[in-house]
Amino acid sequence: MPNRLRTLLASLCIVAAGGAALWVATDGLRVFTTETARRVSIRATPRLLPDVALQDDAGARFALADLRGRWLLVDFIYTRCLSWCNVLGGDFAQLQQRLAAPLRDGSLRLLSISFDPAHDAPAELAAHKRRFGDHGIGWTAARPLDAAGLATLGHAFGLKVVEDGMGGYVHNASIALVDPSGRLVDVFDAGAPRQVAAAVQRRLAQ
């Protein structure tokens, strides 16, 4: 076989193998970042959430599984946060108005979970809600009771927390939707409460 033909053959194999690898690595040229990969995977195969012991902003203990039977909007926050958690807090206060009816009749609940449980005791969690103008309906702020619970939750939700080098954190801030059977079914961007409300209303109307 002449070298030119050999080279052509080798090149074709490389392009085919490389194209296949690229296709797999990007889920068919759709997914380029870890965050998109997380959302695509959650929408395609909803994840049953583990049961984790939590403590709410009034100091009461409860289990995540106790909240089954209603839709949940979940965000992850830490109360010392100066950036994205503030966006999320504002989103939840707005969602309280946009989704007042289902929140009032108990078919929906807002749940903020702190990933800094050592600092965020019930008093800090309650202050977090007040800071964003909590309207007093259907919003619970909570912290995991132990480190293992936080790790389990973080893994299930695909939470990614990076230290920002100034004593704070940066995390993949978003709002997760959990269905009444306790499965994580969708993830929305922070800062877009109107879209979140519309999506939840579609689900509730189904």
């Binding site: 090149s11 490389i14 690898a21 690229l22 690595a25």
Partner: peptide
């Protein structure tokens, strides 16, 4: 690898994969 064609392709495709944020 006449003219360095196959080697260049292999290197390009592989580095392309490592440029994906994911």
């Amino acid at each position: 690898d006449q003219g360095g064609c196959s080697g260049l392709l292999l290197a390009s495709v592989t580095s392309l994969l490592w440029m994906l944020p994911r």
